[in-house]
């Protein structure tokens, strides 16, 4: 779907390249996450992939076409939602979506269905000027889905959403995946990356530090231990056991039978830990 080789990019006026040779491939139907602190090159990468920044070096093939040779028809088959969205503030949600849907040649999704999916159906006739930031972001998310894209680019799709709407957006992204849509996400929210992405790439200082699936990373970087929290005469205590011989571990069995157990957790690493460990940086 997307094949990037040795991608270099320098903004005019900058001495240092913002992207210093990226390599990655994204398969069809995959949800791929770009993780990294702001300024690391996430947005620049996305801007290149959506064909806005053209004078890059290296090979970028998207939908079997070299990106330098694409024209505006490329946008028939992709959907993009930016982090700071805005639509025409004096138009209603529905008017905005209708206008944008008429810019596409191919079949488009009914704007009302999209609004219903993100819980904005009761606000369809409200002007955007009266929308909250979260509502605007959800509307903008709808806009990116209008043309049934083969490829979806989402920049921080979940920031500023309450848990209910966060759930809705995640579900829609997963539903898109099940329809065969390829999704590229940038985020600095590790939980979102963990629960959505098939694979994640850590980007720091214009380089990819690591690419793998969240599950593989967590297992690989974690310790194979389980931690038991229990009550001993009113005070909270904990004890760690190796996962490997847990079934025959007598000490573990004794603890379970003699104390009230409160929690049991395996000690795989969080994405946040791995990020800090591999890049030496914090995410925020």
């Amino acid at each position: 779907m997307i094949n990037v080789q040795n991608l270099l990019f320098t903004y005019s006026g900058n001495a240092e390249p913002t992207l210093q040779g990226l390599d990655f491939t994204i398969a069809k139907g995959e949800i791929f996450g770009f993780l990294g602190p702001s300024g690391a090159g996430k947005s620049t990468t996305i801007k290149i992939l959506i064909g806005i920044l053209k004078n890059y070096q290296g090979q970028v093939t998207v939908l079997n076409r070299e990106l330098r040779r694409i024209n505006a028809d490329y946008y028939e088959s992709i959907g993009v939602a930016f982090e700071f969205p805005n639509l025409y503030s004096k138009f209603t949600a529905l008017e905005n979506l209708r206008f944008f849907s008429k810019l596409y040649k191919g079949p488009t999704t009914n704007p009302l269905d999209l609004l219903t999916m993100v819980g904005l159906e009761t606000d369809q006739n409200t002007r955007i000027a009266e929308f909250s930031k979260g509502m605007k972001m959800r509307l903008n998310f709808c806009r990116s889905l209008l043309n049934n894209p083969d490829l979806l680019f989402l920049d921080e799709p979940t920031s500023g959403q309450d848990p209910v709407n966060l759930r809705k957006i995640k579900d829609i992204i997963l539903e898109q995946k099940s329809k065969g849509t390829t999704v590229c996400i940038t985020t600095h929210d590790m939980h979102v990356a963990d629960s959505l992405c098939d694979r994640v790439a850590f980007i720091v200082d214009g380089k990819i530090a690591l690419v793998d699936s969240p599950r593989a990373l967590k297992l690989q970087h974690g310790s194979r231990m389980v931690r038991v929290e229990y009550r001993d005469k009113g005070s909270l205590k904990n004890k760690d056991y190796s996962l490997d011989s847990l079934a025959t571990n007598q000490d573990f069995q004794n603890l379970l039978s003699s104390f009230p157990v409160e929690t049991i957790h395996t000690q795989e690493a969080t994405l946040e830990d791995i990020f800090i460990k591999t890049t030496g940086r914090k995410l925020q």
Partner: peptide, 12 residues
């Protein structure tokens, strides 16, 4: 208002 952002990722 970032409307241009939204416009120029469509076939317009």
């Amino acid at each position: 208002q970032n409307i241009l952002q939204s416009l120029f990722v469509t076939p317009l």
